[in-house]
Design a protein around this nucleic acid. Structure first.
Lengths: 203, 203
DNA sequence: TGAAAATATGAACAGTGTTCATTATATTTG
DNA sequence: CAAATATAATGAACACTGTTCATATTTTCA
């Protein structure tokens, strides 16, 4: 059985190699430059071989997405340990923006590419991750609402409010629509806006 | 000169026909299904002919974008006449969301496709339009700030806050990320969130 | 060593945007 | 009117894209 195991390991290894190649192409050429043929070339296999290890391109993108979520989590992790709910929300928002601006290609892949509905099982897993993230934000919102005595504010709606704010900001920055507001220094503008948002919402 | 004029008119007509074909393909097959060859097929010319009337696909997309902005303006126009600043902002937000949900393909084209930087002149025009829109929102924000006596709030930052909110909401809805928050009825969720946003910000 | 199973690939299909030499049409001039 | 010229349209090609499948190569096992 040792042989069969090594076979399995070899197979998993190549799968990993393909994913690593895909990742490096994503980072080098962006989401638009990511192609099966480039990946195949990179790992020195024929394009057809890729399909022996992945069902299609969507599956590869999906695996990359999970890598992206892990990276994003690492951006958030510091802020999550913050005790004060408002400060925690602020930290999460800052980390979200930082990730969005610094890891444009990852963010593109995770939030601006069409969700591959074909892999329902995989999607549910990912939903879980996203839902857990959102649930955490909502729970923190509840704490903030209680602490500040905000009345008539639903924590899930507030969480969505906050999420759409930072998501919208990152999106507008990435598609270069923010130049309408201010020509240069998107990062500073985003941080300033986040500060103002926090003050306005949790005043 | 009559002949030359008719020639010009004919040329402009074909240009228009091509754009109309592009529009109908956008509405039928979405932004991903919009191709030069489909357009050419639709107007019964060869693909190469398209390039006699437009520099490249970006130029066509850009013209479509302008059509989209006009359509969006028609969604907004009612709300703009509203006198109360907060109500006006609310109306604009509602119209923005309505447009985003009802005209997904247009919205995609206008806000989620890469801005074609090649046509700088054209882009500046469009900037003007967008900047005018944003300036109006910011001016309305100023009125609201004054009326409600909100302190330490910059109107342009507040305008960006509002814009990123609705933009983020529409974006999350379109990329089906809102299912994390609530499985069904995105429209209702968005309106509920907008209401809550307005109450939270202009309380 | 030879049959069977696993793995890899070349070639093709149907698309994409874009270019350019060639052809067809219309206009102007001799 | 016919020939020369200017305008308009196109077929074919290039370099890509994702994906499939019959064929070929390699590895495993009896």
């Amino acid at each position: 059985m040792g042989l069969a195991e090594r076979k399995e390991r070899d197979k998993a290894e190549l799968k990993d190699t393909i994913l690593e190649a895909a990742k490096s192409i994503l980072l080098k050429h962006g989401i638009k430059g990511l192609s099966i043929r480039k990946i195949a070339n990179n790992v020195e296999y024929s394009p057809a071989t890729i399909y022996l290890y992945f069902k299609d391109k969507d599956e590869i993108m999906h695996e990359l997405m999970e890598m992206g979520f892990k990276l994003m989590n690492s951006y958030m992790s510091e802020s999550i340990s913050e005790l004060d709910p408002v400060k925690r929300i602020n930290g999460i928002g800052k980390a979200y923006i930082k990730f969005g601006l610094e890891k444009k290609d990852w963010y593109d892949l995770m939030f601006n590419s069409e969700k591959p509905m074909k892999h329902i099982e995989k999607c549910l897993e990912e939903w879980d991750e996203g839902m857990a993230m959102f649930a955490l934000l909502a729970a923190t919102c509840k704490q903030a609402i209680d602490k500040l005595g905000l009345q008539g504010v639903n924590e899930r709606i507030l969480a969505l409010h906050l999420w759409s704010c930072v998501h919208g900001l990152v999106n507008l920055a990435q598609t270069e629509r923010l130049e309408i507001v201010e020509q240069n220094n998107a990062k500073e503008l985003l941080e300033k806006t986040l500060d103002s948002m926090m003050k306005t919402i949790f005043r």
